[in-house]
Amino acid sequence: MVPSQVTTDVPRTLLRTPTRSDRIYRGLAIGTGLLTLVILALIGLNLLLQSRTAIQSQGLRFLTSNAWSPQQAEPSFGIKAVLYWTIIIAFIALAIAIPVSIACALYLTELAPRQLQKPLRSLVDLLAAIPSLIYGMWGLLYLQPHMIPFATWISTKLDFVPFLRVSRPSFSSSALIAGVVVSLMVIPICTSVIREVFSQTPQGEKEAALAMGATRWEMIRTVVLPFGRGGIIGGSMLGLGRALGETIAVALIISPIFVIRPSVVETGANSVASLIALRFGEADALQRSGLVAAGLALFGLTLVVNTIAAFVVARSRSGAGVDI
């Protein structure tokens, strides 16, 4: 071996001179990335400032009180019940949307004839383009009359389930109907996220399962679903974010109540977004501030949900041996 000319045996600092286009690209990328964070922070700050009057007036009661009476001589309002119903509607929506979306995504990636896959994908994506007002009107005018007999039936047959027990036989404008409508709006979002992940399942693993004599369903269960688990969770969280924030369709359907009770089939529900939409026009300064505070709570909730979703999707398997 010929000794090298370099005599010092210390790690060398590697210098590089970025080209001008490198610097421009870096600047742009960092700038736009930071811009979204700045906008997010500014929105939060703005909401915080505008809701200050309400928070000062109500203090912690804003989170623990059910009632919404900001116009009384002694104003009292809190978002506990509203937040409760927001989450209930979102969960009903997801309980329907997640299984349907997984089935849709599986059909679109694994089962549908090749020639049909692309048009069907576009159709599902098109569902996301329908304005939520249309969903709301459909829910109010078509779905509700058809849902009431079902709600009546299920609440009489299964009245031992607290969620289905009613105090009076009134089934219109319920959380269930709103949840079903919101689920339709969530399905296209969930489906497209899950579909993308499913379609990236390594061909080799699918063939390995099939070559050992697996049926298509066994292959899906052993290979596609475990691989797509991150996508299923991420897509569902994304759908949850959408369901929590849905405004006009829910506002059209529900009849607002400010109490917490288990029954989801009985008349009456609420949601933060619909509360804001319904009250904002007529609100005085204090109520307006209260509504902004409610919006701030919703903003925080969806931010947390979406952040968790992003983490889950990022941690899902891209190579080998990583598990959630």
Partner: peptide, 20 residues
């Protein structure tokens, strides 16, 4: 086909164990 594939196994060019 599933029965045939169970009797006639296959090893692929690229190793494809189930990573999870």
């Amino acid at each position: 086909a599933t029965h045939t594939r169970a009797r006639i196994g296959m090893v692929f060019q690229k190793p494809n164990p189930f990573p999870a």
